[in-house]
Computed example of a mutant assay.
Amino acid sequence: MPQWEGIREFVAVAESCSFTAAAVQLGLSTAQVSRQVRALEQRLGSELLFRTTRRVALTEPGQLYYQHCRLVLDGLAEAELALSNLQATPQGKLRITAPMSYGERHIAPLLNDFALQYPQIQLQYLLTNQKLDLIDGGYDMAVRLGKLDDDRLVARRLASREQYTCAAPAYLAAHGEPHSLAELKQHNCLAGTLDYWRFKEHGRERVVHISGSLSANSGPALLDAALKGIGIVQLPDYYVLPHIQRAELISLLPAIRPVNEGIWAIYPQSRHLSPKVRLLADYLEQKLNV
Score class of each variant (00 low, 15 high):
4 W>F: 15
4 W>R: 01
8 R>I: 00
9 E>A: 02
11 V>F: 02
23 A>S: 09
23 A>W: 09
26 L>R: 00
26 L>N: 01
29 S>D: 15
32 Q>M: 10
36 Q>R: 14
43 R>A: 03
44 L>R: 09
49 L>F: 01
52 T>K: 03
52 T>W: 07
53 T>S: 13
54 R>T: 15
57 A>Y: 14
58 L>W: 02
63 Q>S: 15
65 Y>S: 00
69 C>E: 00
74 D>Q: 15
74 D>H: 10
75 G>E: 12
76 L>Q: 14
77 A>Y: 05
78 E>W: 06
78 E>H: 07
83 L>Q: 09
87 Q>S: 07
90 P>K: 08
91 Q>K: 09
92 G>R: 05
96 I>D: 04
98 A>E: 14
100 M>W: 09
107 I>S: 03
111 L>V: 03
118 Y>Q: 15
126 L>G: 01
128 T>I: 08
131 K>D: 13
133 D>P: 05
133 D>R: 01
137 G>D: 11
139 Y>F: 15
140 D>R: 00
142 A>Y: 06
147 K>F: 15
148 L>G: 11
151 D>F: 05
152 R>L: 09
153 L>K: 03
154 V>G: 03
158 L>S: 04
158 L>Q: 09
166 C>Q: 08
167 A>T: 06
173 A>G: 05
176 G>W: 12
178 P>N: 06
183 E>A: 12
186 Q>S: 11
188 N>F: 05
190 L>G: 08
194 L>I: 05
195 D>Y: 06
199 F>S: 00
200 K>C: 10
201 E>A: 09
202 H>S: 13
204 R>A: 08
207 V>L: 12
207 V>M: 12
213 S>K: 01
213 S>M: 02
216 A>E: 10
216 A>V: 04
217 N>M: 11
222 L>F: 10
224 D>Q: 11
225 A>T: 07
225 A>L: 10
226 A>Q: 02
226 A>Y: 03
227 L>F: 04
229 G>V: 02
235 L>F: 02
238 Y>M: 04
240 V>C: 05
242 P>Q: 06
244 I>S: 01
244 I>V: 14
249 L>D: 02
249 L>G: 00
249 L>C: 01
257 R>A: 14
257 R>S: 14
258 P>M: 13
260 N>L: 08
263 I>F: 03
266 I>A: 00
272 H>M: 13
274 S>E: 12
277 V>F: 05
280 L>M: 12
281 A>N: 07
281 A>D: 07
283 Y>Q: 04
285 E>R: 14
288 L>Y: 11
288 L>F: 12
